[in-house]
Structure formats: C-alpha cells, structure tokens
Design a protein around this nucleic acid. Sequence first.
DNA 1: GTTGTTCAAGTAAGCGCTTTCTTCAATGCT
DNA 2: AGCATTGAAGAAAGCGCTTACTTGAACAAC
Lengths: 369, 369
Amino acid sequence: MSQEVGSGSQPPTIYDVARAAGVSIASVSRVLNDQGNPRADTRERVLHAVAELGFVPDGAARALSARLKEVVGVVVRRPQWLDGSLFTDEDENLQFPDMINRGMEIVAQRHGFDLLIRSVDLDEANAGSRIFALARKSDGIILHDRVLDPDQLDRLARQLPVVTLAGLPTAATANVHGDNDSGMRAVARHLIHDHGYRTLAYLAGHEGSPDSITRGRALADEARAAGVTLQAGDAWQGGYQAAGGAAAIERLIAAGTRLPRAIVCANDQSAIGVLHALAQHGISVPGDVAVTGFDDMPVARHLRPQLTSVRQSIQDLGATAFETLYSMICGDGSGVRGQDIALPTQLVRRRSCGCDPQLLVPRNAQEAG
Amino acid sequence: MSQEVGSGSQPPTIYDVARAAGVSIASVSRVLNDQGNPRADTRERVLHAVAELGFVPDGAARALSARLKEVVGVVVRRPQWLDGSLFTDEDENLQFPDMINRGMEIVAQRHGFDLLIRSVDLDEANAGSRIFALARKSDGIILHDRVLDPDQLDRLARQLPVVTLAGLPTAATANVHGDNDSGMRAVARHLIHDHGYRTLAYLAGHEGSPDSITRGRALADEARAAGVTLQAGDAWQGGYQAAGGAAAIERLIAAGTRLPRAIVCANDQSAIGVLHALAQHGISVPGDVAVTGFDDMPVARHLRPQLTSVRQSIQDLGATAFETLYSMICGDGSGVRGQDIALPTQLVRRRSCGCDPQLLVPRNAQEAG
DNA sequence: GTTGTTCAAGTAAGCGCTTTCTTCAATGCT
DNA sequence: AGCATTGAAGAAAGCGCTTACTTGAACAAC
C-alpha cells in the first residue's frame, strides 16, 4: 500500500516482480508470455507477485524489445472550414471518418492493438513529416482519403505497412473502399427507371477524390445509356460538405439555372446542404426536385424529407482496413499488397427521391447487376 | 535508393545516421534535440545525413529512454445497443465523445502528443485491466464519462496522471465538464417564464451520470422555485440514447399517461428519439408538447422542428481536458489535481421549445445568473 | 614550456522488456 | 556406478534511443 497520493510512485517493473517472486526476470517474462513451460510453483509465485504489485508491462519497453508496438497510426484529413456559411462549425464532417475509425478500433482490440489518431491539415507545409513521425510510433498506418501525395506514400510504404481508404492502391499498399460503382448505378437506375426522371445533376465531392470520380462516372454511364440529361462540372461542386452543397444550389439559383428533376449528391453531407438551400427557396423535395445522398449516415434518417442514400457499412470499411493492415503486419500479407478491396453497398430508398416509404416501389430496380 | 518494394527494409536507426555523418550517435542525438552546441560543420553533416536517409527516431526507443511517450490514452464508453428498436445502428451515439476527442487531438498536436484511443464495454469483466494496459502505453489518461469505478480510478491515478470528463474529481485527478447547472437553469427559466409552461418532465440520461444528475437537479430547483410541476423518475429514463428516448415516450403513451407541456431531455440524442416518437403519434412539437435537448450537437439544427438545446463548446471540453492533463504530465500540475473545471454553456433557442426563430423572444431570460 | 581551463565529441550506462545462450539438477540409460 | 540426455531457470545480450561521464584538442595564463 503506497502512502502517496497522485502519480508520484512509479509503476512496478519486471524487476520488482522478479524480486517479490524470488525468480529471475526471464522467468517472469516467460510466465507472462506463455513461453517455455515453467514449473507449476514458479508460475504460481510469479502470478501471485504480479497480482500483488498490479504489474503491467511498460508498452515502450515491450515494443522496443519485441519489435512490435501493437499500435496502428490513423491519419484523417481535417476539413477546411468554408467560412461565412450557415454551417461554419461543421464538426459533423468528421463523423464519417470517426465512424470508420470506430470500426477499426473494435477489430484492433481483438488483436490487442490500439489506434493512434492524428488529423492533418492538407495545407500544412509539413503534413508529410508529421505523418512520418506518427509512423515511428506505430506498426502500420491507415490513411484516410488522400492525405499523402503518391511520392511520399511510396516512401512511407517502404518503411512500414500502409493501407489507404478511398484512395488508390499502389504496388506496396492496399486500398479499401465502398463499391461506389454499383451503389451509384443502383441510384441512377432507380431515379431513371423507377421514377422516370429525365434530367439529373451530379453534385461532386472534393476534387481528385477517387470516390467522387467513380461515383460520377457510374452515374454518367447510366445516364448516357438511358439517354437522360446529366448536369455536372464546375457549377456542381459540393466538396463533400453541407456548406458546399448549399452554396452550389444558391449560385445556380442566383444564376437563374433551371434545376434538374433530381440532384444526385456525392455524399449525405452535401445533400444536407442541398436540402437546406432548396427549402430556403421554397422548392419542394421530392415534389419539384428529388435529392439523393451517399453513405447513409445516421443523420439521413432524421432529415425531412428522409434522405435516399447508398448504404455502406461504414464500420466494415474500418474493420476491413484494419484486418488488411494487420495481415501485413503480422501475417505475410503478401497476397494483400496492391489490392483494391471493394465492400458492398446498398441503395436505401426513402422519401427524398420520391418514394413513399409506406408504399415502396418494387425492389427489383435495386438488384439488377 | 532502396530497390525493395514494400516494407521489407527496416527504417534507418541513429547508428546509420551516425555512420553516414561520420560522428557518434550521441552527436546525432544532440543535434536532433538541440542539446549542447555542436560545431557548425557537425550539425551540418548530421542534418544532411538525416535528410538523406529520411531518419525519424523510433517512438518506442525514444519513449523508453526519455521516459516520455508523447501519447495520452483516451477511454470512451462503448454504448450498449438497445436492440429491437428503430435506432439499432445508433452509431451517432459516439459523435459526442468523438467531437471531444477532436478537440483534444488538436491541442495535443501542438505539444507533439498523439491520442491512443480505446473504447470499453462496461459489461466487460476485464474493462479495468484493459484500461491499465492502455495506461502503460501512455503518459496520462483521459477517461470519458464514468468508465472506471472509484477504487480502480484511484489505483490508476497512483500510477499516472488522470483527467476525467463529466465525472467527479478525486484527490489525485481533475475533472472537466460543461456548466450543467447554469445551462439547465437557463432552459428551465426560458420554458417557465418566457413560454409560461406549467408542467414539465425531465428525461434523464444514464444512471449515475453526474451530468444527468446535475441537470436534473437544476431543473427540479427551478421548477420548485416557480411552483411548476415536474415529472421525472423511473418512467423518464432515456439513457442518453435516441432509442431510449423513443422507448420512454412509447411506454408513457401506452400507459395512457398525460404528457407534460414540455419535455426537457438530458441530451440531444435522446431528444431525437422523443421527437420521433411524438411524431409517430401525431403529437405536434412544439404545439402540443415542447421538447429541448442538451449539448447542441450539429444534428440539432437539422431536425424538424429544429431543436432548442444548450450549447457547450464540445471541442473546448476536449481541449481543456488535454491541457489539464498535459500540465500534470509535464508541468508540476500541482494546482490542478482535485479540481473540478466547469466550462460555460449557452442556451440556443430554436423552434422545438415554442420559439419562432424569425421572431425570437427577448434575450433577457437567457442571461440572468 | 608547463599547467589550467574550456567545451565539443566520444564512450558507455541505462531505460524495461524479450530472447538466446548457458548452467546445472534431475532423470534415463548402459 | 558412470555417463548421456533432458529441460527449467538464470545470465546476459540487445532493442534504439538519451544523457551522464570521460576524453582530449585548442587555447589562455603563468
């Protein structure tokens, strides 16, 4: 029983345990790690001393010696605030990455790993070096959404296992993403064939995002195949943010552009902004204009009208990213490098596309490959 | 230039740098840490070799030697899923803690620290030992919302600095929380005096939560002072979750209870459930029943009707928790132990309490201490 | 010219573990 | 009884850093 209050006393070390148990530190280590087969009484004495002292091995020492930190670094992109907007404190932009991280964390725990989380500002000059520093505290790295340019990614992957999310795989890294293509095609077909809309628009995410590009391309394909008009381009950039979506609609209306029958947004977040801007102008959704999102964030259900979206199991995205990285760290991971892993998506029809939730249109549109 | 692809090659060590620069490892370390004053050419050669090799010191080795890991552990409570409800995949329950963590992370970065995040299930038998293990990977620990019982908290605080969030300070730990009392009093006065409601109810958060208790007490005080009826107790438990809020309302309606004129929820999340359940039964908000939340999560703005709530600067909560912990780790931190730090809150009036956002009732109600 | 001082740079100890190597008591065999 | 074999436990090396201590070159003072 220590008489100190506060963290004055150092935690016990393996030497303290060895002394208390009357054995060598090697024996303590062996008992704790199930190496060799210690005699029953040795084991017993060690365990007793460990319990007595409340010994837990120091992570740094263990990591140094075992060459395994049991930590993976996670880098998320800190959103740029678009100021002067309704949505200035748009903290929820981070909800998506946070949910992915949650998925990772739960799986990581099963393997005794923890997540070391760092957000970077892309504008930051030394974003790269900050990521490298994080890497030296970790056994592997998971990079969200394009936080590192290809050159540096390559250098990083040379030093330790790397998995990207919603990026592109390289020879040395794996990538995990939702199946954007089939998800978006399901949206497109539903709008075109089930609802019969003939004019669509695509509100893109941020520039260069592979997710946004793939989604846009899938939509364009389907529109072309059906001979339907699709608006897109500079005027239709939402930057994945509510403020961006709202701003785009405001600009279009101000410019007197005739809105399409349906607006397909690159994600739910920007759809929120679109809904808001349309409401401001008394434009009825889905009566005048239908709106769809992508991701099916929990908030999608609470919007009025409820938002039609494409569900990705966000936690699975994280879980898969971790499992992939883990196989690179601990297993051979040879089969995984360079792979682009797609997770299934599913259209979720709600009110905002024109469906009546009580009386859903037939399911068939949603399946067709 | 390495010819390897993938993480086959080990990152360079300080020995590699020393060899490349033709100096001893001590000199390298000194240059990198600004110790002593190396001669200009020594410094130059070291820096050159570091850049050449892309050397970054290993975190574990550094931590072991410097006795500082530059990592703080964060423990969040993993919500129990209430199953069979509308809100089964209620991931957004974690939005609040995640936003707090974001605030910590940003400040932590300024000090070169990273966050090691772990969620625990309270049911879990060994939750305690999992937290102790995390502790040994960190220089200090931040505990969200009652994840550890007082005994174990005490043992933990004996080993390293600990800060709690929305808990209670102990002799060795500090606690950070929003100013629940004044926030809730502002809500109460607004509902009672500005809107004239004479029957209220308090939908509590989870049992034993100091936040929930303080909020409930403040509301009860104000109700009593104004001679207003307040319902509370077993029937009014929301568990801080949307599903919990919805379930409570369902039960009350099923039991034929006459609803109060205003329902004051312990947080926004449970208010969402309440709004939902009321809508299901065709009960108008705020016309028939007014509803308020607490926290002012971003989602509060997107609900219909928009939710009146109490804003706490959630990121500040995290930032303050980190700064407090940091002062315990690096400074003397003597003044901080045992303190209970309250951050200001502010009433945000929206539609759900009966206010017309275009035509707000006078501000005065909101101020009075 | 000798001794003293200064200070950059090198040497080595140590942080707290894991793990290889070595020792040596206990067993099995001839 | 004498020797080989086994295997648990101890001794010690090292993981990659930081830092106290030691060395010795350069310069100042006598």
